[in-house]
Computed example of a mutant assay.
Amino acid sequence: MRILRSGALRAVVAFSLSVMACIPAHADWEKIKQSGALKVAVYNDFAPYSNSGAGIDIDLAQALAKKLGLRLTLLPFPAGENLDDDLRNMVWKGHYLGYGPADLMLHVPVDNRLMAQNEQVRIFAPYHVETVRLVRNVDRIPQFDSIDALAGKTVGVEKVSISGMVLLGEGNGKFRDGVRIYPTAIDALQKLKAGELDAVLANRSEIESVFRGDPGFPLQDVAFERLPRSGWAVGLAVRKDDTEMGRLLQAAMNELSDSGELKAIFARHGVQVVKP
C-alpha cells in the first residue's frame, strides 16, 4: 500500500506541476489583487530601515502598496545565516517554521553573483546605494588623515557586519584590541553619542539617522582593501515568474523616484538617498 500511495502521490504532484506551468505569469498578481493586500518582507532590528514597524523601508513599502492600490501587510523577519536563506524563506519558498513567503522583499543587494545563485528570484529596481563610513568624536580624534588615526582608540561596530569584518581584519588585526562589538550599529552609535567610544564604523545611512549632520561627529571616507569604495545598491526582490508584479513595482519605483517622494521618505529619517 505504501508503494501505491507513493506512486499516486508522485502522479498527483506531476499533474499539479504541469497545471502550474500552464498558468499565465500574471496569475499571482491576480491573486494579490483579489486579496487586497501587498505582503512585504522587511528585516527586524534594522534601523533606520525597519525597526518596530517604523523606518525607511516601512514607509517605502507603504508607498508601493498605495501605488498598486493595495493595503500593506508587513512580514518582519530576522536575518538568516546568509542572503540565500533570506531569499528562500521570504521570497520563493517560505520558512520551515511557517512564515513567508511574502509578495515582495525590500533591501536586497542588487548583485550579479547573488542573482546567479538564486535563480528562483528576480532582484531589480535599485533604490539606494549604501556605503561604509567612519564617524568620529572630534574631541577624541581631532584630525583624521588615514585609518592609522584609530591606533589606540576605541571603535564600535555591529556584530556579524561588513564593518566589523573589515576593521577586525585590517592590518592583520592591528586595531583589534580597540574594537567594541554591539548588537546593532545603532547601539554602537548611541554609545559614541554618549561619549563611551571614540568612533564607529557603520553604514552611512545608520550614521546619518543618528547624528543628522552634527559637526561634532563628522563622517570620514575610509578605504579598506576588501570593501568596494563605491558601495552597493539595494533594491526589490520577487519570485522569478511574477513578471507582472515586477513590472508594476518597477513602474511604481520609477514614479516615487521621479516625483521626489523617495527622497522625501529618506529625508524623514535623516538620511540622504543616493541613487544608483
Rank of each mutant, 00 (worst) to 15 (best):
P78G: 12
I181G: 07
R88H: 06
N82M: 03
V271N: 00
R239S: 12
D177Y: 14
D241A: 15
P48S: 03
G195T: 04
L189T: 05
G173W: 06
G235N: 13
N203D: 08
I147V: 07
V108N: 00
V138L: 09
A251L: 10
P183I: 11
A8Y: 05
S52G: 02
F15D: 13
N51W: 13
S52D: 04
K275S: 08
F211T: 04
V274R: 06
V108P: 00
P183E: 12
N137T: 04
L227R: 05
M1T: 11
N51V: 14
K263A: 02
I207W: 00
D241E: 15
K33M: 08
M90N: 04
S259H: 03
G173P: 05
R180N: 08
S205I: 00
I186A: 09
K33C: 05
G246Y: 11
L4D: 15
D28E: 15
A79L: 09
L236H: 02
Q143L: 08
R10A: 12
D103G: 12
A264Q: 04
R268H: 11
K66L: 05
P215Y: 15
V12P: 08
R71E: 10
R5K: 11
N89Y: 05
V200S: 01
V19M: 13
K240Y: 11
I147C: 01
K191I: 14
V19D: 09
D85R: 15
R140K: 09
Q272S: 12
L4F: 15
R136Q: 08
A102D: 11
L262W: 01
M253G: 02
E206K: 09
D57V: 02
D258Q: 10
D59G: 00
L64M: 14
A102Q: 13
S259Y: 05
M20R: 12
I162A: 15
Q117D: 01
L262C: 03
A41E: 01
K174R: 09
P183D: 13
A194V: 08
I265R: 00
L150E: 08
T73G: 09
L74V: 06
S161N: 10
L97V: 05
V160D: 13
Y49F: 09
N89I: 03
V42T: 02
M20S: 10
A41N: 03
G164V: 01
P101Q: 07
H107W: 11
V91A: 04
F144D: 02
